Amino acid sequence: MSKKPSPTQSDTGRAKTQASVLAFQLPGSGAAEQAVPDWVQIFPAGPVVATNDGRAFRITDPVRLVAAINAGKMPVLVDYDHRSYFEPYDGGDTLAAGWCSAVEARADGIWARIDWTPLAAQRIRDREFRFISPEFSVDRGEGEVVALAAISLVNRPAFAMTALARSNPNQGDDDMRAIATALGLPEDADEAAILAAIGTRNTELAASRTPPADRFMPRADYDAVLARATSAETELASIRTAQRSVEVEAVIAAAVSAGKIAPASKPHYVALAATDAGFEQIKQLCASLPPVVGSVQVGGANPPGTTLSDVERHIAGSMGLTDDQYVTARASLRAADNS
């Protein structure tokens, strides 16, 4: 705006599409602390920002507004009671209380970082000023806040926002009492007792997250045990397969030797005996079949007496039988076949 009107001038001298707004209201109250904050709240959360005296404006896109403010080439002036808004002959002045170097959008509104002058910081500490009021431009048609012109230290803020200092200087003590109560300690517990209780809680929490050794094991140990079990199962399966091959060979070779199975049919019976059920059927079949061909000598002549052929000796050894035991079993099988 090229020229700012005095408080007594009508609104007709202002721009048609935008209006500058001064955030004044009736006096507030409350105690102040000595701290001088670097960050202060300049707008409450939108999208509708209403003043205490009934006016309402809109900030529908706070991120965009903040970006526009931060993009300005000059820092935003912080003055006293909006005095820089008025011309000198209307009682105004441009004395700076500080300069706004950055703004950011937060969940509760828009905040500004202020570099205070020593005088302003002292006046805040002396409780001469407690609140912040923004001077901004709005779009007349939409009521949308479009620019930030200045920020003022005031005692009559139009917006309900965070003050420059807490209204309760003993808030820290109240917080400590609340923490002590939550930890099950007396309200007057000192800092050392509170920290010790927090440490105990952390230890208990860590212990609760460690599973008992009798129910759980570390992942590396589990993987090692699983690998050993898998290897053992594989080895056992190989042993069982080899043992089954020996048993199948013994049963079918005995049947061939007894003339119950023709030598040319041996591969067929071996294939049938590949499964547990098939092996049981082959054993029953070989036990019940009568001789269909002449006695076959396997692996050479079958000497009389207790002498075994090489094949028969191998079968006897795989079955855990001595030569005599195998000869006896063979004789019993042949006697049964001939009966």
Rank of each mutant, 00 (worst) to 15 (best):
S2G: 06
T8R: 05
T12E: 14
A15T: 08
Q18M: 10
A19N: 07
S20L: 12
V21E: 14
F24R: 11
S29A: 14
E33I: 05
Q34L: 13
Q34W: 09
A35H: 14
P44R: 02
V49E: 00
N52V: 11
N52W: 04
N52H: 06
G54T: 00
R58N: 10
D61S: 07
A67I: 07
N70V: 11
A71P: 09
G72V: 03
M74K: 15
V78C: 02
V78Y: 02
V78R: 04
D79I: 00
S84N: 12
L95E: 14
L95R: 14
A96K: 13
A96T: 10
A97H: 03
A102I: 05
A107F: 01
W116M: 01
L119T: 10
R127K: 13
F131D: 15
I132H: 06
I132C: 04
P134D: 00
V138E: 01
D139W: 01
D139Q: 01
E144G: 07
V145L: 02
A150S: 10
A160M: 11
T162L: 11
A163Y: 07
L164T: 10
L164S: 04
A165P: 05
A165W: 04
S167N: 12
N168H: 09
N170F: 14
G172I: 04
I179A: 15
I179C: 10
A180K: 13
T181F: 08
T181Y: 07
E187G: 15
D188S: 02
G199W: 04
T203L: 13
T203K: 11
P211A: 01
D214C: 05
P218S: 03
R219Q: 13
D223L: 13
A224D: 02
A227P: 02
S231L: 13
L236G: 06
A237H: 10
S238F: 07
T241N: 09
V248W: 01
V248I: 03
V248D: 01
A250C: 11
V251L: 13
V256Y: 09
G259F: 10
G259L: 08
I261A: 03
I261S: 01
H268K: 06
L272W: 09
F279R: 12
E280R: 14
A287L: 06
V292M: 13
P303K: 10
P304R: 11
G305Y: 11
D310C: 00
H314I: 06
R330M: 14
S332G: 06
S339K: 12
